[in-house]
Design a protein around this nucleic acid. Structure first.
Lengths: 230, 230
DNA sequence: AAACTAATCAATTGATTGCTTGAATAGTGG
DNA sequence: CCACTATTCAAGCAATCAATTGATTAGTTT
């Protein structure tokens, strides 16, 4: 009797942990994590995701289905296209805590970030709390340098959209003296680094927000979005 | 030039996300998650972990090495034994958020918990905030029904240790009228369910704490530990 | 030094995963 | 109904992972 019960207990635990391992398995591929990072910006169809990650549509579709089987993303079909999005804001939290743990514990990560990103710009970045204060005091220009469509889907309240490729052409619209803070997708997004480098090369007072839009939103800070026309 | 740069960007991203995927990969096995859950209680040597999970020492050692390669656990050798522990409290946070996500999103999990655990006891459980208040008012007896060694390594401040196997023999030491709250390792630990069932069958006013010691500690609530003799 | 122990290593097996390719499906627009 | 498109499916192959077994290493005890 006691033996039977303990076997049951073991089976229960084994099965239970195996379920949780399904989620772990979904996080076990860099490609899938990259898809999660993109979907944290805004929902996307398969083709877009494939293009943004430089992979085939078939391969991207398969990874999305693994993520969907683990219930981390949801897809809905509209016409020919299937649009995927994160299934839950806690999915982003999970990815964020995995990322933070990796940053602090995997020596390789900090090494890579140092050699690649800090080569671009070694300046200290603006924290979320600091950016929030600057915004409330109104003494900062916040630039969203992601593609326009991501700005449309959601951005830091009060930010202006200037996608990186257009930045050079639109320099004259920016004030010479005021402080400018640029942000993009997250800590490993290169756009803001490049934007700050460009702005500084023209003598503007530019800084980089240390995180990105999804982190700002997850932190409960004010956001805006452009409503779609009907 | 722009092409070279974008290839670099792609390689950087691919490599970077692959690093994070190492952690995901370590979380991709139920057996390893079970080890993390045990190590969240207290540090353990390989043999103990193998016994507690009903697996061979060689297999357990291999899983521990996967966890160590992902820097989620650390081992230190003392004499013949190697003692493993969680490398960082954020490792527990990560496991906790994975678990919570799984609970809410994987239908199979809630199904399993319902059929197995709720068969034991369908009563509502006491939350951490509520238990904290009861403790501060002093109108509750808190029982730690885990093995004594886990109690020693750390327990809810003010709790008494009565390992489940000894509970029946020590019933007479418990007050008839006061409220009793039992806890163990976490939401999927069966010990507290069984303790409450036993206490109630003797007419005591027993309830189950909905979580376990690691969650209590991670939540910043007061804990105690028994210092080892030198 | 010999006997013993805890842990790890090494090699093997079978199972699972990942990627590629080409076909199939479902929906759109002429 | 036909041509076209976005996505998914299916098959095949290589690579990786998981569990088992027996050997090996490092450290303790006698």
């Amino acid at each position: 009797m006691a033996v039977v019960e303990s076997v049951l207990k073991r089976e229960f635990k084994t099965d239970l942990f195996a379920q949780f391992a399904r989620i772990g398995g979904a996080l076990a591929s860099g490609r899938r994590l990259e898809l999660l990072e993109l979907l944290a910006q805004r929902e996307r169809n398969v083709e877009d995701l494939a293009r943004l990650t430089s992979r085939s549509a078939a391969n991207t579709s398969q990874h999305l289905q693994v993520l969907r089987a683990a219930r981390l993303v949801e897809g809905r079909k509209a016409g020919l296209r299937v649009t995927y999005r994160l299934a839950d804001e806690r999915v982003f939290s999970l990815w964020k805590s995995l990322r933070e743990l990796g940053e602090s514990r995997l020596a390789e990560v900090s090494q890579m970030v140092r050699t690649y990103l800090n080569g671009k710009d070694s300046l200290e970045a603006v924290t979320a709390a600091s950016l929030r204060r600057k915004l409330e005091r109104g003494d900062v220009i916040v630039l969203d340098v992601r593609p326009a469509e991501e700005y449309t889907a959601g951005h830091i309240a009060g930010a202006r959209s200037i996608p990186l490729p257009q930045l050079r052409a639109r320099l004259k619209g920016l004030p010479k003296r005021r402080e400018i803070v640029a942000y993009c997708r997250g800590p490993y997004c290169i756009l803001a680094y490049e934007a700050v480098a460009l702005l500084r090369s023209y003598g503007l007072r530019a800084f980089r927000f240390e995180q990105g839009f999804p982190e700002w939103k997850a932190g409960g800070h004010p956001v805006q979005r452009i409503e779609a026309k009907r």
